[in-house]
Simulated assay, not measured.
Amino acid sequence: MANGWSLIVGLVFIVAFCGASWFLAPKGDDQTIWRSSLILSAAACYLMWAITFLAQWHPLVQPQRNDIRHLH
């Protein structure tokens, strides 16, 4: 069931993943690239999911049925 808590739970999960990515990134010359890649991809995935979720949860255009016969 879709509710407002889905956004918050998803955000908490992404923040935890980003924190883990920051501290658990492999040490070495490419550590900055690993951190940036993981954190940016997680943030982009969350934003895409959240925008899609909200667009379906509160649509801007209400669907209309065409199979209803109008009586004059």
Rank of each mutant, 00 (worst) to 15 (best):
63 P>D: 04
9 V>E: 15
1 M>D: 13
3 N>A: 01
59 P>K: 05
6 S>Y: 01
62 Q>D: 11
72 H>A: 13
43 A>P: 02
60 L>K: 08
10 G>D: 03
12 V>H: 03
4 G>D: 14
68 I>K: 05
67 D>M: 03
1 M>R: 12
58 H>N: 10
24 L>E: 09
33 I>P: 00
67 D>I: 11
16 A>W: 06
63 P>T: 11
16 A>N: 08
8 I>G: 00
11 L>D: 01
10 G>S: 13
24 L>V: 07
43 A>I: 07
53 F>N: 00
56 Q>Y: 10
54 L>M: 14
64 Q>S: 14
54 L>T: 00
1 M>A: 10
11 L>F: 06
47 L>K: 00
30 D>C: 04
67 D>Q: 13
42 A>K: 05
66 N>I: 06
65 R>C: 07
68 I>W: 07
26 P>E: 02
65 R>D: 12
14 I>S: 00
39 I>P: 03
27 K>H: 09
46 Y>K: 01
70 H>I: 14
39 I>H: 06
19 G>I: 06
45 C>Y: 08
44 A>D: 02
7 L>K: 05
50 A>Q: 06
43 A>N: 00
52 T>D: 11
37 S>F: 12
62 Q>W: 00
57 W>Q: 11
57 W>G: 01
64 Q>I: 11
54 L>W: 12
6 S>L: 04
69 R>A: 13
46 Y>S: 03
33 I>A: 05
23 F>D: 05
72 H>Q: 13
